[in-house]
Design a protein around this nucleic acid. Structure first.
Lengths: 120, 120
DNA sequence: CTGGATCCCTATCGATACTG
DNA sequence: CAGTATCGATAGGGATCCAG
């Protein structure tokens, strides 16, 4: 039986040939979590320094406030971002990446490179 | 076109400020492409050696043949997999990763590691 | 400024049945 | 085996209006 070799160089990489079914589901879940519409754009915006609600809306092209609100809740539940309320008048709300979220963004860097590599 | 890095060598701090809007959209597009429902599971199944239609259905839990058919077309159009028809009786069809697709799977390994690192 | 609530529309999905 | 066709249900999305 022959199959594609996905493991090429370093030993730190995962060997996808021996992933069990549970890991398969986890992998799928992880990709679909961040792959949901607008999620990655929102995360990227926050990672780039857009901490405010209105900032994110203006940075992520096409994103509506309703969807942003919804996604922010999902991302917070997923533990990727944290919501910080500053009790001023009016109230200020800031969003930042959690360590888990920041680690995720780092892990997505190879994907960004891939997109760049295969851009036509 | 400026090549960029999501992570600087400075510290744990992310430096994404020099990413232009075009790259932002590309990044979002790349994540959402592979993050579509079932797509990653199908790619992983093929990467693990499931070349046949029925194999993929049985390996990816919950996936219906209709959706598999649809996703396979999308992934083929995206240039991630190739469809090989062997003219026997009955016809055999095999799917495998293209170099672009294999490269993608390698680029997703850090994400799999991330999922593993932050599993509770 | 930061959303919540509502309406409505479309895309997408799962199930079922069918074909070469 | 490797799909296609059809259909009803539903989830997701855009637009709009409203509130603390």
């Amino acid at each position: 039986m022959t199959y594609y070799s996905l493991v090429t160089n370093t030993d730190t990489q995962l060997d996808l040939h021996h992933i069990d079914d549970d890991a398969c589901l986890k992998f799928q879940g992880a990709v679909e979590l961040v792959g949901k519409r607008w999620s990655s754009g929102i995360l990227l915006a926050i990672a780039r320094g857009s901490e405010r609600f209105s900032d994110i809306v203006s940075v992520v092209i096409g994103l509506s406030d309703r969807l942003l609100s919804q996604r922010l809740r999902e991302l917070e539940i997923a533990g990727l971002i944290e919501r910080v309320v500053v009790p001023t008048v009016p109230v200020q709300v800031r969003y930042r990446l959690t360590p888990k979220g920041a680690d995720l963004m780092e892990s997505l860097q190879p994907l960004a490179s891939w997109r760049n590599r295969w851009a036509e």
